[in-house]
């Protein structure tokens, strides 16, 4: 299957279950070394929602994120985006899905060392037919002054901002963030969280953020707490806290 997905004209009902995770199981290894990572994972996320997946190490949050991102697959159950089930997509369709609709932010930035800030962001822009204006985004990211610097000339926070820029420049429907503040200090972490919040508000992307930092849940619309591969709590935040007011 290879199609050019479009999620701009979804009905309200479809928007509510924009991302649907249905009875997803995942195990690694065989025999004695078999380990069940996800066990009947079931929830949905609305379009434009800021969702935090919270849980301790080994709870399955990164595995779930990878399956949503189409770089890993579920053993059972399914995940659908705007009604399109990932398990029905072949490799080409999955690549196209990631290309057009997903943005990825990792804990360790993974920037290309011999491209400068602007070029690293252009690496993301190249994938999209309606990418954001790179210079405007550089201003939004606070990186305009540093746009000609190479990654090794930047601080950790600046590198992570660049990686967020690379992910959102293609204006993805879903932004997947895997522990984006995991390698950063308190102040820099807050800066990054503020930026993600701003992106969510400004561009309306659905954000799925994996973290083990309990404080971050306060800024999310939707918090899913995981433990031992299962959803333990599914909370909708009515009193969100601004990122700048977070404390831990």
């Amino acid at each position: 299957m290879s199609k050019d997905f479009s999620y701009d004209d979804l009905k309200d009902e479809e928007k509510k279950e924009f991302l649907k995770v249905s009875q997803v199981n995942k195990a690694y290894g065989t025999g004695d070394s078999r380990q069940e990572v996800l066990r009947g994972m079931d929830f949905s996320v609305a379009k434009g929602e800021f969702c935090v997946l919270l849980g301790p190490s080994g709870s399955g949050k990164s595995t779930l994120l990878n399956i949503i991102g189409g770089i890993d697959s579920a053993d059972d159950g399914y995940i659908s985006i705007g009604g399109d089930k990932l398990r029905d997509m072949d490799e080409k369709a999955l690549t196209n899905y990631r290309r057009k609709h997903l943005g990825y932010v990792f804990q360790l930035y993974n920037l290309i060392p011999n491209l400068n800030v602007k070029e690293n962001i252009e690496v993301g822009a190249y994938l999209s037919d309606n990418s954001l204006d790179t210079d405007e985004l550089l201003h939004t990211l606070g990186l305009y002054e540093h746009r000609y610097k190479l990654p090794n000339q930047l601080s950790g926070g600046q590198q992570q901002r660049t990686s967020i820029g690379r992910a959102i420049v293609k204006n993805p429907d879903i932004l997947l963030c895997d522990e984006p503040t995991g390698a950063l200090d308190y102040n820099t972490s807050k800066e990054i969280l503020k930026l993600i919040e701003e992106v969510n508000e400004k561009y309306g992307n659905t954000i799925i953020m994996v973290t083990h930092n309990e404080a971050i849940q306060q800024m999310a619309d939707h918090v899913i707490k995981l433990r031992d591969g299962k959803v333990r709590k599914n909370i909708y935040n009515e009193n969100k806290v601004k990122a700048q007011d977070l404390d831990w």
């Binding site: 770089i71 196209n96 990631r98 290309r99 997903l102 990825y104 993974n110 290309i112 994938l127 293609k170």
Partner: peptide, 15 residues
């Protein structure tokens, strides 16, 4: 050496 970068690019949709 660039394994993680390639992983990121593939995850971002590079073929």
């Amino acid at each position: 050496n660039e394994a993680a970068v390639i992983g990121t690019l593939r995850a971002s949709g590079y073929t």
